[in-house]
Design a binder for these strands. Structure first.
Lengths: 225, 225
DNA sequence: CGTTTTATGTCGGGCATCTGACAGACAGCG
DNA sequence: CGCTGTCTGTCAGATGCCCGACATAAAACG
């Protein structure tokens, strides 16, 4: 379920802080965002951002639907794509630079290139996970997979009794899983009734029948629609 | 609709041919495939492939459904991902190397790094296009978008009377658009009946009411399901 | 030229999910 | 405490699409 790539993560921030002075002035700008604030493209150019602290949500906005692609955390990098938006989901500081500038400057900087490749690969991996979800799994399967991922991310074993934190509310989950608030809510409670887990306080759940969860997550009922 | 990235394309093959000798022996292997042949991973390692001639289809195989991610053509590069398969859709020759080997060797080779970044970005772009399709567009919209893309790719203006080649049959289209043969067939013929285009011989269609096509393609009726 | 194989067209039934609407639960704040 | 806004649960109706089955058309092949 997506390797950590930790060396690249820690290193790119370190590179920016320590070796940043070797770069021409003004390639990377530091910017700060408040919760809910949108990163707006000043012009039509592509930009590369690297999160320093906080959390940015990368999402599609098409017509009146939102689809969250990823929640970016410190060390993550992203390239603003057409039609893709970014929003701070908590106070956030980041580095930003024009893509063209980055390419010119970093062509002679193998370490950065390496970091860039890793960053792109990670985003690609996340995109593929989402695509796989949409293409092959029902809403229930996607929710189960999200719970499993949340547990893994929090370093929690998939065993009965364990408490798993859910970073997202129903609505945000729905946007991340490509479904609707109502469907998430309904499925979630159905899963509880069937004994897969129980609700702890808000934003937390306690695992019960883990095999149920695993079956749903691994595509027991496969998406045809 | 996805920039050409042509410099990277032409250059990476050139790099492999001309500067290949500068690389340690045996990093990149040349392999040939016949139509229909699968690229099987000899082991669990990740591989990087670069198409030399022909065409490879990259696709998911989950349970009994297939979803084509992309058709790779000369100059395209790809990294074999878990759960992702590759199949020659015509006689094909390609270069292949272990990812780890590539990373070690190319860390000191900025030109290759550059090419790698471009290649990854292109794959990411295609993945996002597919994701956007699945998330936001109905079957009809996806078909329309595919027709528009086919025209653009063939360098054909979107004007009545123009003949657009469709490289794919109904079944292959369905796999690429994340739907079924039947739905593609039905929608396709409905679009013909509504006057968007007419069928020429097999694999070709003649544009008629282009505005219809554009409306469907740009998400006139947006996906809710 | 007939036969076989493959690609395409069409239909009816079923189902997962969306929509819109409303009610209850919870949190923040004066 | 009571008010207000936001989050959550649930329902009934509508729908886009899948599935299986079968019919037709077009290519492949002797």
């Amino acid at each position: 379920m997506m390797p950590p790539h930790s060396p690249a993560h820690s290193s790119i921030l370190a590179l920016l802080e320590t070796e940043g002075s070797h770069l021409p002035r003004g390639v990377f700008q530091k910017v700060a965002f408040e919760r809910g604030q949108l990163l707006t493209h000043p012009d039509d150019a592509d930009y590369i951002v690297i999160i320093k602290t906080g959390c940015m949500r990368a999402f599609w906005l098409a017509f009146d639907r939102e689809l969250s692609l990823a929640y970016l955390r410190p060390g993550d990098m992203f390239s603003t794509h057409t039609r893709l938006h970014m929003q701070a989901s908590e106070p956030t500081r980041l580095f930003i630079a024009r893509r063209t500038a980055v390419e010119q400057v970093l062509a002679v900087h193998p370490a950065f290139q390496q970091a860039l490749v890793h960053g792109l690969a990670k985003v690609l991996g996340q995109t593929m996970t989402l695509l796989e979800d949409l293409a092959f799994h029902h809403a229930r399967g996607r929710i189960a997979r999200y719970v499993v991922r949340s547990a893994a991310q929090a370093g929690i074993a998939l065993q009965p009794g364990q408490v798993v934190p859910l970073a997202l509310g129903m609505e945000e989950m729905a946007a991340l899983l490509g479904t609707t608030r109502q469907t998430v809510s309904t499925e979630f409670n159905a899963m509880i009734r069937e004994g897969a887990f129980a609700r702890e306080r808000r934003g937390y759940l306690r695992l019960r029948d883990v095999s149920l969860l695993e079956n749903w997550a691994s595509g027991d009922g496969i998406r045809n629609t």
